[in-house]
Design a protein around this nucleic acid. Structure first.
Length: 559
RNA sequence: GCGCUCGUAGCUCAGCUGGAUAGAGCACUAGCCUCCGGAGCUAGGUGUCGCGCGUUCAAAUCGCGCCGAGCGCGCCA
């Protein structure tokens, strides 16, 4: 039987044991059974605290309850399909029941890893629901910054993780190709173009500076020439040109970073066929849009927002949120049941109104999960690199990638929970040494590949039948246990929408491997044992590779 | 003023939906290659978990208040 169902069956049996003992509180038919992996190994592979939860209701000492429940559980286990998997139970004060899995069970886990290969660890958490991860979505007004880099790393990893846990996950980039900022961009480029032709022009206030604007202006001038740029269509042309150019630049940067979006979703497309207008019409009909002081407001306070929000300005122009509301309606209509949005910290005030808008449209707002991706500070050793988005002096994602490489860049962006500030040390990321966590994990993978390479020369071992029962050292069992926990770790990451969990799992697995490697020789005197250990490290390699794949980091065979 | 996030070892951070003795890495010290890659391993010790009150059999974890840090609060996006 598949090892993944062990927990389910156990929960079931514990519930039955409680019933048999007559401990089920009256009026309750189902008890939430806690079943966790204890922090301390000597407390077993799994533990439940039901006895303590029942203690106060039953007015009995928890340890006594634990004894009785575990006696019943022992009996139930004897006739169950998992009797081979659970080796023993123990009760410990203040009232825990600890379960120890058998070695045979762990060997079975290894078998599964080898059989399923890259598919091992996949789960059905999402039950095939469609999930959309929308991230980066940077205004096309310049190259991607380091902050976007972090969003890209997190978003891409999340999409991988969701896909691996049973969601049909898609990545989407919402292209903000109209609105005030884009007008400003167009004007800025146009002025630079004119300047390059010797036409004097007033640079807009708060316009976009930076060398890339100037060089875009020059190519705009070359492409269209004086006559066009002095015509009435100039602004529109310049805007289109700039958005197109910068869109390509951003796309190129994301490609280099290994992030593959589906087709981008341009904001401008929402205006076609009156979709946006219809969406506002729906809000109006449902009574969540009202007119005041010449503007139209979304009654977002009806759903917990601080204040109502303007959707149509008094001059008739739409605000940004109008388009965004329509965009999110579109997401639902496209069949997505989980909407994950990755936003910068400056957007968190925006969450409440988006949620409100979704509810106002009649969609379930729980479907929306907004992750705020905190900014990061770039450091070079002790020195902090100042970042100003003004003056085009900021460090770009491309610069970081050029300096530390893609693997290190992606890994470091994921190294902290995404809602916490991140210190990105360029020096450390470049180091090919023990302090660098990327190499620690990749090195484990490369080491295994190396052993497997060497093994080919030893025909005696290649032909041997593996005898798993010879693997009984703490180091070997630790690795097997970790292999078992992989799926749970990925599921937890999916639930929390937090790739960080996968990283810490991989660090643990790599550490356990290095430790094992140091104590035991894989290619040794005993062919049956060597063959078993080869299987073990193959399993470890598989899981390391899968985990790294989920993070978008490569698993090199040689370093 | 209101809202969000955060406060854990000297530093950077883990600690899953409350659980049993609060953990890693860095830094510091001392060791480990006749042997599959030493980019590795082992051993050393530190904590008012910001403060207080509450909920609970059990609180770093949940609730409230306070202190401190960061960010947001436009008919900008």
């Amino acid at each position: 039987m598949p090892t993944t169902s062990l927990e389910l069956t156990l929960r079931d049996l514990i519930q039955k044991a409680v019933e048999e003992a007559g401990f089920l509180p009256s009026g309750e038919s189902v008890l939430p059974i806690s079943l966790e992996i204890p922090r301390i190994r000597s407390h077993g592979d799994m533990a439940t605290s039901v006895a303590m939860q029942l203690a106060s209701k039953l007015r009995k000492p928890p340890l006594e309850i634990a004894e009785t429940v575990s006696n019943h559980l022992r009996g139930l286990l004897k006739d169950s399909p998992i009797q081979e998997s659970v080796e023993r139970l123990e009760t410990k004060p203040p009232g825990f029941i600890n379960l120890f899995v058998s070695r045979n069970f762990l060997y079975q886990v290894l078998q599964e890893v080898l059989e399923q290969g890259p598919e091992y660890g996949r789960s059905d958490l999402g039950k095939g629901r469609k999930a959309l991860v929308e991230f980066v979505s940077a205004n096309p007004t310049g190259p991607l910054s380091v902050a976007h880099g972090r969003q890209a790393a997190v978003g891409d990893a999340l999409a991988h993780i969701l896909a691996f846990t049973g969601y049909r996950a898609m990545r989407e980039y919402y292209l903000n190709d109209e609105g005030t900022q884009i007008d400003l961009l167009g004007e800025s480029v146009l002025v630079r173009a004119k300047e390059s032709l010797g036409i004097s022009a007033q640079f807009p206030e708060n316009g976009y500076k930076g060398d890339y604007i100037r060089s875009m202006g020059e190519s705009l001038a070359k492409k269209f020439g004086r006559a066009v740029l002095e015509s009435g269509k100039a602004k529109e042309i310049s805007k289109k040109f700039a958005v197109g150019e910068l869109g390509r630049v951003i796309q190129g940067e994301l490609d280099r970073f290994g992030v593959k979006f589906g087709p981008w979703f341009p904001q401008s497309s929402l205006n076609r066929f009156g979709y946006l207008t219809r969406t506002l019409g729906i809000l109006k009909r449902r009574g969540y849009l009202y007119e005041q002081e010449g503007a139209w407001w979304l009654k977002s306070t009806a759903f917990g927002d601080d204040k109502d929000r303007v959707v149509i300005r008094s001059d008739g122009r739409l605000t940004y949120i109008a388009a965004d509301i329509a965009y999110h309606r579109k997401k639902f209509q496209r069949g997505f049941e989980l909407l994950v949005n990755l936003w910068g910290p400056d957007h968190h005030g925006y969450i409440a109104r988006m949620r409100a808008a979704i509810q106002a449209l009649g969609f379930p707002s729980e479907a929306l999960e907004v992750k705020i991706i905190q900014l990061c500070t770039l450091k070079r050793g002790e020195e902090t690199i100042p970042m100003s988005t003004r003056e085009g002096e900021f460090t770009t994602l491309t610069q970081v990638m050029d300096e530390v490489g893609m693997d290190a860049a992606r890994f470091f962006f994921l190294l902290r929970k995404s809602d916490a500030h991140l210190e990105f040390d360029l020096e450390l990321a470049k180091k090919h040494s023990l302090e660098n966590p990327v190499y620690y994990i990749q090195y484990a993978h490369a080491r295994i590949c190396n052993i497997l390479e060497n093994q080919k020369k030893e025909s005696e071992i290649s032909g041997a039948r593996p005898d798993y029962s010879k693997m009984s050292s703490p180091e070997e069992l630790a690795l097997l246990r970790l292999l078992r926990e992989f799926s749970g770790a990925v599921e937890a990451a999916a639930r929390a929408l937090e790739p960080f969990g996968v990283i810490s799992y991989l660090q643990g697995l790599a550490e356990a491997f290095h430790r094992f490697y140091d104590v035991h020789r894989v290619l040794g005197q005993d062919p049956a044992l060597s063959a078993a250990r080869l299987d073990l490290i193959r399993g470890v390699r598989t899981v390391l590779a899968t985990g790294l794949r989920l993070l978008g980091v490569s698993a090199p065979e040689k370093m």
